[in-house]
Design a protein around this nucleic acid. Structure first.
Lengths: 225, 225
DNA sequence: ACTACCATACTACCATACAAGTATGGTAGC
DNA sequence: GCTACCATACTTGTATGGTAGTATGGTAGT
């Protein structure tokens, strides 16, 4: 019986796309890695067509670069793009959390509470992977609750670049406790409907991401453009 | 000799994509129109492959909807999506024009001046098509001047939906004179480095877009979801 | 030793064939 | 006349062959 855990029968194309995207974001496929349609197709056990289509989709999102008749490569991290992504995210997150302070469905509020609790558990367990996902979820729930899930979706496109940079940072420094505390305070502000305070917290929260972009570029020079 | 007017040899895929996109945005292919991979391929004189790939790209941008084994259709206009697009654009345009009031390259300022002059000409000539493009250019130049062209690019993705709605409105009412006046005032504000004033003008300017979404939905019910 | 050249082995792009699912119109049975 | 069914003609998804352009390593000539 199908319990509806996956509403779509997942095409080969989507499966390949999803897996490649994840590997690129997690830096398992580091920037600059060449990707071959042929190799990938035998790896996934499908033909070149779905592989090619997934490459095109990744290219549109800027995660890979397709050079006609030469090859396809995982994109190098573009610092300018990362900063633009951060800027964009800051503007939208601020606007959304201010909205959330005005009107916010109870259901979404509950999900935020649950998310926070889960963060506590993951910090104790030092589960970085889950923590990263919970961080993402926290912000997505805010957008969801404000009826702005499409904005979240297109933002994710630029976020992909920002996230690769964040991922590099996490190798050295986790600092989840600090991020957790900020999440907690933001939730408090939303519940107290303190728009100005929430905006300020969000700005602070997101400014952490960009802190030492230049240092990273020095440390991992061949990952950057 | 190649004067470099086109840096890329334009693949068949990109040609098909660009033309379909324009026809969809200009409502020459109205919402709901079925698109056949086969028909389109003979129409453009290419095989199904590049057509299919262009369909996939349009689908990712939400301009067409692909129903596996059933067909591909030009997406209906989603009012919720239009409102999200407007909201997103407002936040980003406000932030950018405020930036522009702080620091803005002379070269971009000159392009804005030129753009304004061209608008004057087009209004006299009642050239709607050019006016629409100049309107777009005006805002793009602002993003460009602030080094935010990638943000503009991803924003265009959601803007596609907003623009179809705007296009419907233009059938009845042009009102270019008003928009021109607002553009002119915004340029003045940027030159005077009046951030607060520029933001206010921009908010006003963009709020026009959404005015009578409900009316449009009543007038063209089968274009909307 | 160094350079120019060329065969070779890649690459992505496009065309085409086949597979699998869906809508539809006609027909047999009631 | 009405309904259930099925052949058929669609649709998109996938596989594969062929083409043109590019990078590369080896070789002949200097």
């Amino acid at each position: 019986m199908d319990f509806g855990v996956r509403s779509q029968p997942v095409s080969a194309r989507d499966a390949v796309y999803a897996q490649l995207r994840e590997q690129i974001l997690k830096l398992e496929l580091p920037p600059g890695t060449p990707l071959s349609e042929n190799e990938t197709s035998v790896l996934f056990g499908v033909s070149r067509t779905p592989v090619r289509e997934s490459f095109l989709r990744l290219a549109q999102e800027g995660l890979v670069q397709v050079l006609p008749q030469r090859g396809t490569f995982v994109s190098l991290i573009d610092t300018a793009l990362v900063e633009e992504a951060r800027f964009m995210r800051e503007q939208l997150e601020r606007a959304v959390i201010r909205l959330a302070c005005g009107e916010f469905p109870q259901e979404a509020l509950t999900r935020l509470e649950m998310n926070i609790r889960q963060q506590e558990v993951c910090i104790e367990a030092q589960d970085d992977k889950s923590m990263f996902e919970l961080d993402e979820s926290f912000h997505r729930i805010l957008f969801d609750g404000c009826g702005k899930r499409n904005i979240w979706a297109v933002m994710q496109q630029m976020n992909a670049h920002l996230n690769r940079s964040r991922m590099l940072r996490l190798v050295d420094d986790h600092n989840w406790a600090h991020l957790y505390e900020q999440h907690r305070l933001m939730l408090e502000a939303v519940k107290a409907k303190d728009g100005a305070g929430a905006e300020r917290l969000m700005t602070e929260h997101l400014s952490l991401n960009i802190a030492d972009q230049a240092l990273l570029k020095e440390k991992y020079p061949n990952y950057y453009k």
